Every structure is written in C-alpha cells, then in structure tokens.
Computed example of a mutant assay.
Amino acid sequence: MAEEMQNELEAKTYNIGDVVEGKVAKVEDKRALIDFGSKIDGILPIGEISNVHIEKVSDALSEGDEVTVKIIKEDDEDVILSKRGVDNERALDDLEKKLESGDVFEVEVADVVKGGLVADVGMRAFIPASLVERHYVEDFSDYKGRTLRVKVVELDREKNKVILSQKAVLEAEADQEKQQRLESLEVGQVLEGTVQRLTSFGAFVDIGGVDGLVHISELSWTRVEEPSEVVKEGDQVKVKVLKVDTDAEKVSLSLKATEESPFEKAAKEIKVNDVVKGTVRRLVSFGAFVEIQPGVEGLVHISEIANRHIGTPGEVLEEGQEVEAKVLDVKPEEQRISLSIRQLLEDEENANVEEYKQDDQGMGITLGDMIGDQLKKLKK
C-alpha cells in the first residue's frame, strides 16, 4: 500500500516539503481531508491548521475552502499536510519586512494566556502583558476578540518566535503628539492644566499631553517651603508659559504669573509720601528690607534708617522689629519700593517744632516780654 501511494506521489511529482494548492473535501471533528490533485486526499490534522488553538476543524475550515498546504509526512496509508507550516513561512517573510520598516498593522486577539495575549498573524504571535498598553492592566479577560494596532519588536526564525507590541505604537503616537504640542506652545500663553505630581522643587502640570514644570519659586508670590502648601495632585490650575525647549522637551510654567503680583496690588494702594507700617525681615550691609504687605518688601537704605550717621543697620534695627516708614518711591515694574525711617523722624521733629511755634504765638508771650518783666521786678 505504501509503495502504491509513493508511486502515485512520484507520478504527480509530489515530494515531502512541497507546497501545493488544495480544496477542503471533507471536514471532520479533528481533521480535514484535502484534495490536492492526487488520487489520495491528504489529511490535514487540526493541529496543523492554525497557529492558535481551535476546538474543532469547523472553527477554521469549511468544505470547498481553497487552502495552500505543505506535504510534511507520509506513512503506510496517508499523506499528512500542514497549512500552519505554510502560513508560518509566509508570515515570517512578511513580518521580517514589517520589523525592518517599523510598519503598524492590525491584529485580532485570538486568546488570552498567562503573561499576555496571542494573535494569529499567519503564525502564532505573542503580545506580552507589559507591551499591551502604556498603563498597567490587571485583567485582560475582555481583550479576546479586540483589534489592536501593533508593531513587530522581536522575531526569531529558528525558534519560530514573534513578539508584537501595541505599547510601542501608542508611545510613538504620544511622542508625536507631544512634539506637535510643544511646537504649538508660545511663551506668554496662559493655559489650563492639571497637577500631575509634586516634587521637592516644584509641581509638574499636564497642559494637554505635555508636562511642564512650575518651579517652587513660581508657585506663589509669597515664600513657599513645600509645593503642597499651594497645590495638590489633581488640582486644575491656570499657568503661564515661561520657556519652551522643544529639543529637550522641557516646558517652564508659572502659577503666580497668572495672578496680580503683590507689587502691582501695592502700587494701587501705596503712594509716594504715604506712611506705612511694616516688619523688618532682613538686614543687609546696605540697609533693611521691611515687609509692608504680604509678599511686598520695601528697602530702607542705610542712609535712610536714622537721623544720624550709623555704620550698620543693626545699630538701630533688628529682624522682626515693627517700624513705621515714609514711602519715597514705588516702582512695581521693578518690584521695588523705597522707604525712609529718617525722613519720617525728621517730619515728626519738624511737626513738633511747628506745633510749638503755634502754641507760643497763641499765648502772645515772646522771649523779649519775659526778659522785660524780669528786669522790671529787679528794678523794684
């Protein structure tokens, strides 16, 4: 019998390893019979039909379907065929090209297995769990039957191994969107954003696919020790673009720049020659900084601290001391207010002198009158 079958194969010039075209003649539970031009129908076992698991042959084939198969074995009575082997070779050729070109293509998830997903791309391809999404996925049970856009990231012909990644596609698209977003940003823009995370040096804010940094010095006009004093993760905030570096993909933002500065507010309320109260915050060699409103400090130059010569501000003032001063100049654009304690003291002295003069005139008594009265008494 084997000899007759071999003669028939030789008559048709079929050999082990030949790839032939055939038609499904019959579908059984675990195999299909294939008419490929020989007097004997070839047997296509269920395990040689697909690269992914199927429960029965009818899940993949129907009578009359045309198939391309490879002759892989012969025994005493049968010729064994493989559709999977042909699909594998064709798929490997195609996938190698896709790997080289970086092409993105669609696959349907055939099965969910331990560690990831399986897709039939003409051969069995594996998508590891870590390469499915950009975020962590705990349960993949609802991924079966989904269509994913993937790239080939690894291929080994010898091991018949193909690794696909949807994550690589999503990250490439996200990078492209990020670059486009960066290029659309302009210094001075005011945007809405969401606080993503806090660090010791500031807060990162998502402004539409791009995370920008609000440095701790740009969170508030007042001194901030920790970013959490001003914002928390998830907060919706308004920020101003200070700097954009598209090459380094860095964006500098400011929260305080969207608000009226304390100096701008102070300029509306404080005028030259006003007398203000404040607290000495810092002593420096050239003077003292006095906080006259939250976030607003004025400088009392050393020459304006006292109505006498002093060597250092510390001779007269100390940090934390409450003082009054006269406003000499207000420049909000330079965030500078000049103050004088000396002029206020002089104004008070002058006012006292004027008050004394007025009192003196009101009594109608002069120094001459007082001396004349004394002389008259002496003569008597």
Rank of each mutant, 00 (worst) to 15 (best):
A325T: 00
E322G: 09
R146Q: 12
E346T: 09
P45K: 04
K232L: 04
G287E: 02
L148F: 07
H53A: 13
D59Q: 07
E186I: 10
K167C: 07
E355H: 09
V251S: 00
H135E: 13
S254H: 13
Q374A: 14
F105S: 02
E77H: 12
A32K: 09
G295R: 00
K331F: 06
D76I: 09
K12G: 06
G298P: 03
V150W: 06
Y356H: 06
D76L: 10
Q180V: 05
E333I: 13
T147K: 14
K326P: 03
Q321C: 05
V107M: 02
I49K: 09
F126R: 06
T258F: 04
N51G: 08
A60P: 01
G202T: 04
V290E: 02
E186C: 11
V241W: 08
E297R: 07
S165K: 07
I302E: 00
G287P: 01
A168Y: 05
V296C: 07
E264G: 06
L375G: 07
I127E: 00
L219A: 14
D18Y: 08
A32I: 11
Y143S: 09
L164D: 01
S165C: 10
E100T: 04
T279V: 13
S261W: 05
E192D: 13
K30P: 06
Y356M: 10
K277E: 15
D175Y: 03
L299K: 05
P227W: 06
V251G: 00
L378Y: 05
L375R: 09
L182N: 01
V109Q: 05
V121Y: 02
Q361L: 11
V137A: 07
E315W: 10
V300P: 02
Q166F: 12
V284Q: 08
K70H: 11
D59A: 06
Q321K: 11
K161Y: 13
Q361I: 09
A174N: 11
N88F: 07
N7L: 15
K159D: 14
L198V: 07
E291T: 01
